[in-house]
Deep mutational scan, measured.
Amino acid sequence: NKFNKEMRNAYWEIALLPNLNNQQKRAFIRSLYDDPSQSANLLAEAKKLNDAQA
């Protein structure tokens, strides 16, 4: 399933972002599970926040 693969990839990328705190990571990951079709958008948002907090 395409969404499962995208979701799994996004999950690990988000989990490993160095500048997000655990609460932020959990919120993004919860959103991934709520709507796997938004994986790419959620990952992009997480990366933006990660960069902003660098």
Rank of each mutant, 00 (worst) to 15 (best):
N1C: 12
N1S: 02
K2W: 12
K2M: 13
K2H: 14
K2P: 08
F3L: 15
F3N: 15
F3W: 02
N4V: 03
N4T: 05
N4C: 15
K5I: 02
K5F: 01
K5N: 04
E6P: 02
E6F: 02
M7K: 01
M7T: 03
M7S: 03
R8L: 15
R8N: 05
R8G: 04
N9M: 15
N9H: 15
A10Q: 02
A10E: 01
Y11D: 01
W12R: 14
W12T: 08
W12M: 09
E13A: 14
E13C: 13
E13M: 07
E13Q: 08
I14V: 05
I14E: 00
I14L: 12
A15F: 15
A15Q: 13
A15S: 15
A15H: 15
L16N: 13
L16T: 08
L16R: 13
L16E: 12
L17I: 01
L17Y: 06
L17D: 01
P18S: 05
P18V: 06
P18N: 10
N19C: 06
N19M: 09
N19F: 08
N19A: 04
L20S: 00
L20E: 00
N21Q: 11
N21W: 06
N21M: 07
N21F: 05
N21C: 11
N22R: 10
N22H: 14
N22W: 12
N22A: 13
Q23P: 09
Q23Y: 07
Q23S: 07
Q23V: 07
Q23K: 08
Q23R: 07
Q24I: 08
Q24R: 04
K25P: 00
K25H: 01
K25L: 04
K25M: 03
K25Y: 03
K25I: 03
R26P: 01
R26D: 12
R26S: 15
A27R: 11
A27V: 09
A27D: 12
A27T: 12
F28R: 03
F28V: 09
F28W: 02
F28D: 00
I29M: 05
I29N: 02
I29D: 01
I29L: 11
I29W: 10
I29A: 08
I29H: 15
R30N: 13
R30G: 11
S31C: 08
S31E: 08
S31N: 12
L32F: 03
L32S: 01
L32T: 01
Y33S: 04
Y33P: 01
Y33G: 04
Y33W: 15
D34S: 05
D35L: 04
D35K: 08
D35C: 07
P36T: 03
P36S: 04
P36I: 08
S37P: 09
S37N: 11
Q38N: 12
S39V: 14
S39I: 14
S39A: 14
S39Y: 08
A40F: 06
A40P: 09
N41F: 09
N41Y: 14
N41W: 09
N41A: 08
N41I: 13
L42E: 02
L42P: 01
A44S: 10
A44N: 11
A44K: 12
A44R: 07
E45Q: 11
E45C: 11
E45T: 12
E45G: 06
E45D: 14
E45M: 08
A46Q: 00
A46C: 03
A46D: 00
A46F: 02
A46W: 01
K47P: 00
K47C: 04
K47D: 02
K47M: 06
K48D: 09
L49K: 10
L49G: 02
L49W: 08
N50A: 07
N50E: 02
N50D: 07
N50M: 01
N50V: 01
D51C: 12
D51F: 10
D51V: 08
D51S: 07
D51E: 09
A52P: 03
A52V: 07
Q53Y: 06
A54W: 06
